[in-house]
Write a protein that binds this DNA or RNA. Structure first.
Lengths: 212, 212
DNA sequence: TAGATTGTTAATCGATTAACAATC
DNA sequence: TAGATTGTTAATCGATTAACAATC
């Protein structure tokens, strides 16, 4: 397993393999072939093999990959083993949902606290603190937080984003449907619901048209 | 504006242009150039121009595009004008957050109702009904619902998905971190948080490495 | 050995970018 | 006219797919 440069497209497929491999823990054989994986996930088998080659140090011809070690390889590669601390700004409905979502731990994400201009509550149901905004920078600096999640309304997204950058955050996961300007060394990933919707609506429109 | 076949990549960028154009309503000039748009969103200007060519019937050299009609063109193209009805299954935290999110209306999405195996409440804060699962098929058929949103835990996602397909749904927007098997004529879009996280974590890891 | 499977090298495909002609 | 901007045609780039040799 070399540290070759990995493309975004491959990166985005890895969690899918991981989830599937975890879901078949009870399987009879401890091995799984790229062929089988591809069939289960509805993908091309060559693509699966190439993707796995990026993270694994090899399967065995005729047999396949050792499932357990494949899982470990992906986890190590994606950094699921060492957790990333994050803060979240915007403790509205969506923000609270994310703060309470337990699944993130599995992916090595640990949201330490939520922030809000005007916290309605001081803790989430699962005990995570919700703090006033003015404590953000001190909190991030002292906990060395590098990841921030934005769940504020569109109008406030850019100023919240600026605040995060000022607080030393290097990776921003935004749920606000708007473009964010950041310095070069900061990465923004837009979980833009509008984009997803566009693809789905288009499919529906095309289907309706074909029906006629 | 022809109905050329449009690629997914273009489709996913259109909402970004739309949001930005809406956000500069107060601007002095009623025109905007692809150059200006590109600069504002940090994109290549040729790409912007090509994307706009797909939806608009042309800008004017030296001047640019008429902002208002560009907005309309994108809205029409993405179907923001005629609303799509949807149902949501899984009225947990995330499900309720989506049911209450008002921004969807802007994109032509109208979530009619939520469903849950065991509804804790019968209505959301904004008055949307939360119904028991066994009413799903009748509801979908009678309201001719074609889009479904899945916000149930991973283990139940596939069976919920099957139920949606059985109820006539053709486009599924899933927030469950797992692969879903569907017939060919049904489209699934995975809003897979794990995928997004993978990209961001990788960026952080790379940055930490470079720092040393 | 034969056959399934791996990994690699080459070909294809699609999307982005660059170059340039057309237009106001 | 000159210059900014559009739209198109060609070149590049990257990712996917196909073909094939290697291996157990």
């Amino acid at each position: 397993m070399e540290k070759k440069k990995i493309s975004k497209s491959v990166l985005k497929r890895l969690p899918g393999y991981h989830a599937y491999l975890k879901s078949i823990q009870e399987a009879e054989s401890p091995y799984i072939s790229a062929t089988a994986l591809a069939a289960a996930l509805g993908m091309g088998e060559v693509q699966v093999r190439k993707d796995l080659a990026m993270v694994s140090d090899g399967g065995r011809p005729k047999i396949g990959y050792l499932r357990e070690s494949l899982i470990e390889d992906i986890e190590q590669f994606l950094g699921y083993d060492n957790t990333t601390d994050a803060v979240l700004i915007g403790a509205g409905k969506l923000g609270q949902a994310l703060l309470c979502y337990r699944g993130f731990e599995e992916y090595g994400l640990n949201i330490l606290a939520g922030f809000d201009v005007n916290p309605a509550i001081s803790r989430t149901e699962n005990g995570k603190p919700i703090l006033p905004m003015d404590q953000l920078e001190f909190f991030c600096r002292s906990h060395k937080v590098l990841m921030g999640i934005i769940t504020v309304p569109e109008q406030h997204a850019q100023s919240v984003c600026d605040l995060m950058v000022k607080s030393g955050i290097k990776a921003i996961w935004s749920f606000a449907p708007t473009h964010l300007d950041v310095p070069d060394n900061v990465m923004v990933h837009n979980e833009n619901m509008a984009n997803s919707l566009a693809v789905l609506s288009m499919h529906l429109q095309a289907q309706m048209r074909d029906k006629k």
